[in-house]
Design a binder for these strands. Structure first.
Length: 537
RNA sequence: GCGCCCAUAGCUCAGUUGGAUAGAGCAACGGAUUUCUAAUCCGUAGGCCACAGGUUCGAAUCCUGUUGGGCGUACCA
């Protein structure tokens, strides 16, 4: 890639001026030329010289076959202009390399866990955001050279599960308590599950065995439902890990032993505390409660122990917005197990669904939450994906469902899809089945063509930067920009013409654009459209 | 009280390892079309980047303080 080559050339020029290693990515796409660098400003303090002077020295010494012009502007910004031949070569690489920009494997393994909703109810709105985000992030990390596993953790043990079992059994037991369990599950689906069990096993007595029976059968029912929802939303996992298996596997004892060994356990008020306060946390945390049961942290730590033992270098957890206070104690725990492991806990922020500016209440059938099933009925999933993924995950979203429907035409996802479909449509019209792969470099004297190839070149760097910063919204923003340039080119330059050479040049260029748009959409798990259908809205 | 996140155009939001004139879409106004699908393009208007200091050659971006909002602060999960 010519950006890489330029970086190399620049570094080698600089190395003659100073031994100081400036290994930062200093090349940026610029509105003053093709690309620019602020390196002279960064070197100024080191070389004790003005940026303008340093820029002049660099220019004097700099050589690259790809660069036709280099100049210093505004006190020392270096501005490079590529030769048309270099741009042509880049386009050919985009066309010939089926994985343009994809990095070779770096040997690092990433575990990315997301959603992990309790198996006590259907998936809801915020799970969709975490799900889309997890899928995208996983694709991005793969592109950037990591080996990734997407993981779903099933919390099928603990208090909530007992409560879940009781809530079900309550409906099909003769001798249950007078009162429905406090904090029990009240969704209508609970009754459905109860009816199913009743049809299988008849009425059941109220005892622990039957509570367990109900929770087991209930979990099975819910997981099936959740998996169906995930499938409909295009969210896939490589691993499903069950808390019950973690509990059986001995990792809990090993966690306790390890913490004890490190002197990080303390008994107080009949409970056992993990001394997390000195690590990342601001206070110590209970791991075994005074009644002898575990708090959530202990099995979850054991689970992370298990992940670490499976050999991951980086562990990413995408959690819901109510887990804010949990991050530091988890980091403390992971750090205690193995301080070399990089753990990144991300929070997918709250989504408020609105309808005409008012908080949207869906049917009360499942309680107060908006389920995947209800979402699917109300909105196109690809639209939802794009809108969710265009926001940075730290930003809460107010999402007006009516507006998304009503403004379908102006929805950013359609803007991008239309660019893709437009290219397909032109190719169709021109009867092109294969890329002509012939391009005269003179096409890059057309400003819009130049903008397009430069934007295409940026694609891999957008993805690499997301792999570092997790700012997933950049993909959608980038695609919108690329689509905008395509629309502009299309509008100003007729593609189909009697001049076969000219036509082939443009088709070759657009072939590249289509490929990048398609790659970007696929990264987001959105299917590129080959034609736009009229939506009845 | 303490901790974390946030505050950018009328609205929804982009814009951070500090960079050159702060952007897009919607909404408003004006133009382009009997098209390679106008689901598009071009233009006008709209900003004290919450406020006040500081660091720097340079700040929406970093630091401190203030104001306003969200979340967390369980022997819940």
């Amino acid at each position: 890639m010519i950006i890489e080559k330029l970086e190399q050339a620049l570094l080698s020029t600089i190395s003659k001026l100073t031994s100081e290693n400036k290994s930062k990515q200093n090349i940026t796409f610029s509105r003053f030329s093709d690309v620019s660098s602020n390196i002279s400003f960064l070197l100024a303090p080191v070389l004790k010289n003005s940026p303008a002077n340093i820029a002049d020295k660099i220019i004097k010494d700099f050589h690259s076959d790809d660069i036709t012009n280099i100049k210093s502007l505004n006190g020392g910004f270096l501005n490079f202009t590529f030769t048309e031949n270099a741009l042509k070569n880049e386009l050919m690489e985009i066309l010939s390399n089926s994985n343009y920009g994809k990095k070779t494997a770096n040997g690092k393994r990433v575990n990315i866990e997301f959603i992990s909703a309790n198996p006590t109810g259907p998936l809801v709105l915020v799970n969709a955001r975490a799900g889309f985000t997890g899928m995208l992030l996983s694709n991005i990390m793969q592109f950037a050279g990591y080996e990734t596993d997407k993981e779903y953790y099933v919390n099928d043990s603990g208090n909530q599960i007992g409560m879940f079992g009781m809530s079900i059994l309550y409906h099909i037991s003769n001798n249950c308590p007078d009162e429905f369990p406090e904090n029990g599950y009240r969704g209508l689906y609970i009754k459905d599950i109860a009816e199913t069990i009743k049809s299988e096993s008849g009425t059941l007595d109220w005892n622990n065995e039957n509570i367990k029976k109900c929770s087991d059968r209930g979990i099975e029912y819910i997981l099936k439902w959740q998996k169906k929802s995930l499938n409909e939303f295009g969210i896939e996992f490589d691993n499903w890990t069950y808390e019950s298996n973690i509990r059986k596997s001995g990792f809990i004892d090993r966690t306790i032993d390890l913490f004890k060994e490190k002197g990080l356990l303390e008994e107080k008020d009949n409970a056992v505390f993990f001394r997390s306060s000195g690590i990342y946390d601001d206070k110590d945390r209970v791991i075994i409660k005074s009644d002898g049961t575990y708090s959530y942290l202990l099995p979850d730590t054991a689970y992370h122990f298990n992940k670490i033992e499976r050999g991951y270098d980086i562990i990413i957890d995408i959690l819901g917005p109510d887990h804010h206070g949990y991050i530091n104690r988890l980091r403390s725990a992971v750090h205690t197990i193995n301080e070399k492991i990089e753990i990144r806990v991300l929070i997918a922020q709250l989504i408020t669904l609105l309808k005409n500016g008012e908080k949207f209440e869906m049917s009360k059938r499942q309680g107060d939450f908006i389920t995947f099933d209800e979402l699917k009925e109300n909105i196109d999933i690809d639209v939802l994906k794009f809108i969710f993924l265009m926001r940075k995950m730290s930003q809460p979203i107010n999402f007006d469902i009516e507006e998304a429907k009503k403004q379908t035409m102006d929805n950013p996802v359609y803007y991008v899809q239309y660019a893709h479909a437009r290219i397909c449509s032109v190719f169709d019209k021109a009867g092109v089945k294969k890329c002509p792969n012939s391009i005269d470099e003179k096409i890059f004297t057309i400003p819009e063509a130049r903008e397009l190839i430069l934007k295409m070149m940026e694609y891999p760097y957008i993805i690499y930067s997301i792999a570092q910063t997790f700012e997933i919204q950049k993909v959608g923003v980038y695609l919108t920009e690329l689509a905008g340039l395509l629309h502009k080119f299309y509008h100003n330059h007729r593609i189909i013409s009697d001049n076969v050479d000219d036509m082939n040049n443009k088709i070759t260029l657009l072939w590249g654009v289509r490929k990048i748009i398609s790659n970007g959409l696929k990264m987001m798990n959105i299917k590129p459209k080959t034609r736009m259908e009229n939506n009845e809205v």
